[in-house]
Write a protein that binds this DNA or RNA. Structure first.
Lengths: 339, 339
DNA sequence: AATATATGTCAAAGCGCTTTGGCAGAGGTG
DNA sequence: CACCTCTGCCAAAGCGCTTTGACATATATT
């Protein structure tokens, strides 16, 4: 960066201080001077040095996004959240940096290190697995932080989350109102807040309709197993029950379509024989079968979180907890029980 | 950051200069002093200020990744590339920032602005659509840049790309060796380097086997149309030809499974009646049908590009062009022509 | 023993901005 | 007319590091 602010100041015939103020449009500068300085800056092709500015002002004009691993970005869930964050960050001319929240053997995880180094003015944390203990380190350093899609038990930071519980309740009620009584749930075997909420919603809805809860109808598979064996086994178990389910729900994205296929391979027709409900984009979908699904407002979670973060950075107090609705969108995979 | 380097220096009884060198492990510092300083730094919980360091050293220890829009991160293609970049960046303790390369009305696109502001030590550009003209702006500022998955006509920067041409040639040859003569191609209607290469590979392979090229066998659909209508129409057109194709290839990710479904709905059995080849993850796949596909080494593109970038930053000269192989992975969607 | 070389340390000069406090002069007030 | 308040500008003091050159002291080479 050959051309520095002092060059602009010199050529415009003003002091460094005035040039600085003029370019940022703050402080007491006459509009004439302001214009002149900006013009000169343009002619000279001046760009302020981000690091100098950050050092002098104490603001990096960069937001951090902490995710477990950058690999997770490549899913529609994380991708949409990040897109939402980016959209808002952009309108405020904030840069976006990513940091991994995965623990490291002998040092702080990356997001903590970066935070300590002052790389961010604030941080959005999107990781259900980060422990409360670790968050307290962040809490001590007075860095604005917003949590996404986490229950905030300690409530150290504002959080934006989705009401999975209510959404599942709604979906289950829908099935019950169609006449279903035996509803199977297939879910990953991890203890994430999100999944606990979903199961909670299921139980609540069943209870509300006085249908006894049957533990056998909840089947889990190994979370990160990419094969279909786990799913297959779940279905075999469920179909082997004396009283077979009349409806299936998948609690994880992108599993519903495979689930449909496995069911169809057993000769079951959807929705004639059996109903299916999924989450979000239930895979690319089928040509003639669109799965009824609960849509999670990922993009909105991101944009809301970012907005909150900016508020926090600007010294405003942010809402402690924002709960967004996930909406149940019926399509053509549910019908009254057929068997 | 209450605790600064000078505090560490003071407590350790050394000068600022020595403390600085000790902590970074460079310069002439005795190992005793080095250890002592590091110990004190640990006790005090010292973290160097990223901006101060950047300003003083001229290195931000941050790499930029320019993508068209952050929304694109949420696909397996971009996601894997970024994961590859991140993996390498991490082992070198480099931060990762993202910048959009989408043009702006009245100012530089974000990635150019950020680059000018000196936010990055180098940048990986993953955007086939960025114009050469714009790249020349970057070229003028002596910022190390590596291009991913672009042909580098101007050759201003080192590039890492995939030999789509050869991969498609291989896939087509495979089909031909199975006895196919009429191979349909379904592709988005955009003029991306990648797609041109793929079509080129198709033509080359056909020519090599003395099969006349038939323009009618190449069908395009509107690129960003998320519906299946475009695909459907392509297939209807192809099936309406006097001499129908015996094999179908999809040139875009995640379309192959839908294509299969549409073909099956016409009563065609795969691979008995008709063969299908896709790219990469051809969607989530089917339970009993895994599509033969060309696997693109996205992760490796990312890691290679990042490695090159780091070389460039360290003043080493980088290979101008790295061409990676995409490999054709046979599964069970191809067989000798059945109709 | 005398010179050359290597080693460990430090003071000081930045890096390129922001920000504060002060100082003129223009304008308003009693 | 004296007084006060704005307004527009500037000099200078940082921000918290890195890096350079100088200076001792220790070790190696003749």
């Amino acid at each position: 960066m050959a051309v520095a602010l002092k060059d602009v100041a010199q050529k415009a015939g003003v002091s460094l201080a005035t040039a600085s103020m003029a370019i940022r449009g703050r402080g007491r500068v006459s509009s004439q001077t302001c214009l002149r300085v900006k013009k000169v800056a343009g002619e000279l092709g001046f760009s302020p040095s981000a690091s100098a500015r950050a050092l002098a002002s104490g603001r990096s004009e960069t937001l951090g996004v902490a995710v477990r691993d950058l690999y997770y970005l490549s899913g529609p869930y994380m991708g949409s959240i990040v897109a939402g964050i980016a959209e808002v960050a952009d309108t405020h001319n904030m840069g976006l940096s990513f940091a991994r929240s995965i623990p490291k053997a002998d040092s702080d995880p990356e997001y903590v290190r970066f935070a300590k180094e002052g790389r961010f003015d604030g941080m959005v944390l999107v990781d259900q697995a980060v422990q409360e203990l670790e968050l307290s380190i962040l809490a001590e350093m007075t860095l604005p932080v917003v949590l996404v899609d986490r229950k905030g038990p300690g409530r150290m930071f504002p959080a934006v989350r989705v009401d999975y519980r209510a959404a599942v309740r709604e979906a289950v009620s829908h099935l019950i109102s169609l006449g279903h009584q035996r509803l199977a749930v297939i879910t990953p075997d991890v203890e994430l807040f999100e999944l606990q909420e979903k199961v909670g919603g299921y139980k609540e809805a069943m209870e509300a309709h006085n249908i006894p809860f049957d533990r056998n109808l909840i089947k889990t598979y190994v979370a990160n197993d990419m094969s279909i064996d786990g799913l297959k086994r779940c279905i075999e178990d469920l179909e082997g029950l004396p009283a077979r389910p009349t409806a299936y729900m998948s609690f994880q994205d992108h599993r519903a379509s495979t689930m449909c296929e496995l069911l169809m391979m057993r000769g079951l027709r959807i929705p004639k024989d059996i109903s299916v409900i999924g989450f979000d984009s239930a895979g690319p979908g089928f040509v003639n079968l669109v799965v009824d699904a609960i849509k999670v407002p990922c993009h909105e979670m991101g944009s809301r979180a970012c907005q909150l973060l900016l508020d926090l950075i600007r010294g405003r107090t942010a809402t402690r907890e924002t709960v967004l609705d996930a909406t149940f969108e019926p399509a053509n995979s549910c019908a009254p029980p057929g068997r």
